[in-house]
């Protein structure tokens, strides 16, 4: 249902969309049922001279069942939703598939910096490629990202990936994604971060391996011409907490 509003470009996006559909169908069933009964009662029991109101306490067993049965049915639906939710959550946030590439994502007032390994394939070496507000990645490649913040709480959100994670100053929070579609999409900051929160926009460029490598060679030749806006907090912070294993 969600793809009607926004396309999906990640490996786990489909799971989140399915969970959305499951909840919408279950909750929607109860919603429509309740509204239909509500409006039927409103119409059926409108004031008529010849028909006085009934006296129903709702405390007899035969009356309570109208509350008790839906109560148990809702509980069953809740269990189904909880199972679905935990399944998706564990897949996206707790488990990590085999990683192909690592990148560092740094939020600061009010820009996103991205650090990825240069031709040597290793992060935190001299040939790292740093970019600001532009993230270039390969399609069908599993990335582990390390999210940091220099100043306040930001949130790294890629709607087409259905991916979101807060960047908390003083911590490095890791996660993963795998793009399944080529294209160019929005990255938003999803946590109020001050005056420029509304302009903290970035773009993600998902390209095939060849095109990505072309971009990488071109960027590597301009080594260090794009400076990071600030030092990586992980380098200077002593009190960092590892998250997500």
């Amino acid at each position: 249902m969600l793809t009607h509003f926004i396309e999906n470009a990640s490996s786990f996006g489909q799971d989140i969309d399915s969970l959305f559909s499951l909840i919408t169908i279950l909750a929607g069933f109860w919603f429509i049922l309740a509204e239909l009964i509500l409006f039927y009662f409103i119409f059926r029991f409108r004031r008529k001279k010849e028909e006085p109101a009934k006296y129903v306490t709702g405390e007899k067993k035969s009356e309570m069942k109208w509350i008790k049965i839906p109560h148990h049915l809702i509980l069953v639906c809740d269990v189904a939703i909880v199972i679905g939710a935990i399944f998706v959550w564990v897949k996206v946030k707790q488990d990590t598939p085999p990683i192909d590439e690592e990148i560092r994502v740094i939020g600061q007032q009010w820009a996103w910096s991205f650090v990825q390994p240069g031709p040597d394939g290793l992060l935190d070496t001299a040939d790292d490629i740093s970019t600001v507000d532009k993230l270039h990645i390969k399609v069908d490649t599993t990335y582990r990202f390390h999210l940091e913040s220099v100043d306040v709480v930001h949130s790294f959100s890629v709607p087409v990936f259905r991916l979101k994670q807060d960047a908390v100053p003083g911590r490095t929070i890791s996660g993963w994604f795998k793009a399944t579609k080529e294209g160019e999409f929005d990255i938003q900051c999803a946590e109020m971060c001050g005056l420029g929160h509304g302009v903290m926009a970035a773009r993600i460029f998902i390209q095939s391996e060849e095109k990505h490598n072309e971009w990488m060679t071109a960027s590597a030749s301009r080594t260090n011409s794009t400076q990071l806006l600030a030092t990586t907090p992980s380098q200077k912070n002593k009190t960092k907490q590892k998250q997500n294993g």
């Binding site: 109860w30 029991f45 409108r46 109208w66 809702i74």
Partner: peptide
Amino acid sequence: TITTLLISVPIAEMLFVYIATLYGGSIQF
């Protein structure tokens, strides 16, 4: 997630009770 979905049960029940109150009424708008 579990506790949050659990809280939907009493709230839904409360709304059902209110809808059930309308049953057999003489509703004046």
